[in-house]
Design a protein around this nucleic acid. Structure first.
Length: 492
RNA sequence: GGGGUUGUAGGGUAGCCUGGACCAUCCUGCGGCGUUCGGGACGCCGUAACCUGAGUUCAAAUCUCAGCAACCCCA
């Protein structure tokens, strides 16, 4: 905290204020993040219950667009959407022993109906396996029912005891997309897990967020799973954010919930299952990775407003306004989301406002431009240019596409410049202050846990990409030679 | 899990240590009117606050306790 009384006299502080009137610098990531969510009207964090936050209409609009990409990708890969209840009876929830162990400290329980205690306690789903699989027992009959690929997008509740954070660590996850699939064989399920991470990487490409897929170490897998694949993004402060997981459940849950099918020979056999999920953390990554000192930068596909038109008015200038209206009509007919800001504020104030909101393209039209038959086009992540009137639509189209690929490219470069091969744990300890360390590991649980202990950070696992996950080395704990390289990072 | 700090208009703050009055300070925002408008305009008028509960006291934003919430540090 800066002392109030000197701050106004200090030139350093004054400059800082000049650069960013309402927003802390992005280099103070935590403050920047919290403040941006509030001032850009994504979330209102003042809801008076710990770990619960309100989606503002603007933020909700981003959310809707992001999740419609997810729906599109899932629907195009054979998935169907359904919806299961929020409340899970205690006896179903308690069926799978490992699963319970993983979640029991985090479950909210409904114990009363009005003032009467319930005979059967009801859990608020922390995830929906135990809500869905009793139904799968009824639905799955035959090998011809397979694969069964169902997803839902719902809220889930977890009583987090660690520090909660909007979009990142919540007590109510408002936007949990969870898919639950059933397959005939273990191998079919394994293939589906691969497919899931492929879909997630496509999804994140659409958000211009580069990600890394890796296989979580055994002690960090989903409770009740055979193994867990995870998708991680790298945040500006060097911590990784787990933004998607895919679990191979084997026949573990099938045994518990008695999910069997009749195979072609007429035998009743256990099904194999997977589940995979993405939460609103995807939006945390989206915001954090692209934003800058001025505020949000949104990839055009998910920006609620793609083009803002600012009239530069002198006196009662009808010509400028009607030029703005004409352009707006043209762009809207082409399917773009356009806003004309003809409010009473001065142009500069409007620029700052819409930059904060991350609008990809700003068009300025003033008397000078009318005379020259041009408009001024400013890219949120770049410069201003003059564009001739008859070329505005194609130029905007082109720029929006280019912006997406530029955003992805710079995010990807930033990610890869912050992954470093380390030869010992001291180096790892040092490097994870700013990024992701690669280090050899023999694969033994005891060595892995010791590495985490020494470094004070987590092992993300062995990356799927061989360029990251392979390499000769020796385990830093036991000294055995190994071809496996794992990723270590500070995590959210 | 352990420790610490904080809670005053929509946001940010002063006042609290050392209890009391005079309109609870200033910036910002918001509403109105007018002048303005090519990178955060200005004038005038208006608007709005002491987290909740209990206690001490003639008197509480200020002191004590509890709750709720936020932030920071350590494990």
């Amino acid at each position: 905290m800066t002392n109030m009384t000197d701050s106004s006299d200090s030139p350093g502080k004054a400059n800082k204020k000049e650069e960013s009137k309402t927003l802390p610098l992005k280099s103070d990531f935590s403050e920047w993040y919290n403040e941006l969510l509030q001032v850009a009207e994504i979330m209102d964090v003042r809801y008076p219950v710990k770990g619960l936050y309100v989606w503002n209409p603007f933020g909700f609009s981003i959310r809707s667009r992001v999740y419609s990409i997810m729906r599109e990708l899932l629907d195009n890969t054979g998935h169907v959407e359904a919806m299961f209840p929020l409340l899970i009876p205690e006896h179903e929830f308690m069926k799978e022993a490992e699963h319970i162990k993983g979640f029991e400290d985090e479950v909210y329980w409904v114990t009363h109906g009005g003032t009467d205690p319930l005979d059967v306690k009801l859990a608020l789903r922390p995830t929906s396996e135990t809500a869905i699989y009793p139904m799968y027992k009824l639905w799955v009959r035959s090998h011809s029912d397979m694969p069964l690929l169902i997803y839902q997008i719902v809220n889930t509740f977890r009583y987090e005891t660690k520090h909660t954070r909007p979009l990142i660590r919540l007590r109510e996850i408002t936007s949990f997309k969870e898919a639950h699939t059933v397959h005939a064989t273990w191998d079919d399920a394994a293939a589906q897990v691969k497919e899931a991470t492929r879909i997630y990487q496509q999804f994140y490409n659409r958000l211009a967020v580069p990600t890394i897929v890796s296989k979580r170490p055994d002690w960090d897998k989903f409770p009740g799973a055979d193994y867990t694949m995870a998708v991680d993004a790298l945040m500006p402060d060097g911590k990784t954010l787990q933004v998607g997981t895919a679990h191979h459940l084997g026949d573990n849950f099938a045994k518990t919930f008695d999910i069997t099918y009749e195979d072609p020979e007429g035998e009743q056999v256990l099904a194999h299952q997977t589940c995979y999920g993405v939460s609103e953390r995807c939006i945390a990554a989206l915001i954090s990775i692209h934003g800058d000192n001025k505020g949000l930068i949104l990839p055009p596909e998910v920006a609620p407003t793609q083009v803002v038109i600012i009239p530069i008015l002198f006196g009662k200038d009808k010509a400028v306004l009607s030029a703005c209206n004409n352009l707006s009509d043209t762009l809207k007919r082409a399917g773009l989301r356009v806003v004309i800001d003809d409010s009473d504020a001065r142009p500069g104030a409007k620029y700052y406002k819409w930059e904060l909101k991350g609008v990809p393209i700003r068009i300025e039209i003033g008397p000078r431009d009318l005379k020259n038959n041009v408009v001024v086009m400013a890219r949120r992540d770049g410069d201003k240019t003059n564009v001739p009137n008859d070329n505005v639509l194609p130029e905007i189209d082109r720029t929006l596409k280019e912006m997406h690929s530029d955003l992805y490219k710079s995010a990807s470069e930033s990610l890869h410049s912050r992954i470093e091969l380390c030869s010992d744990l001291d180096e790892v300890k040092d490097y994870i202050q700013s990024g992701i360390a690669r280090i050899a590991w023999c694969g033994e649980r005891s060595c892995g846990l010791e590495m985490e202990e020494i470094v004070g950070a987590g092992i993300l696992g062995e990356p799927e990409d061989p360029a990251l996950g392979k390499g000769d080395g020796t385990c830093p704990i036991c000294g055995k030679p190994t071809g496996i390289v794992v990723l270590m990072a500070r995590t959210y």
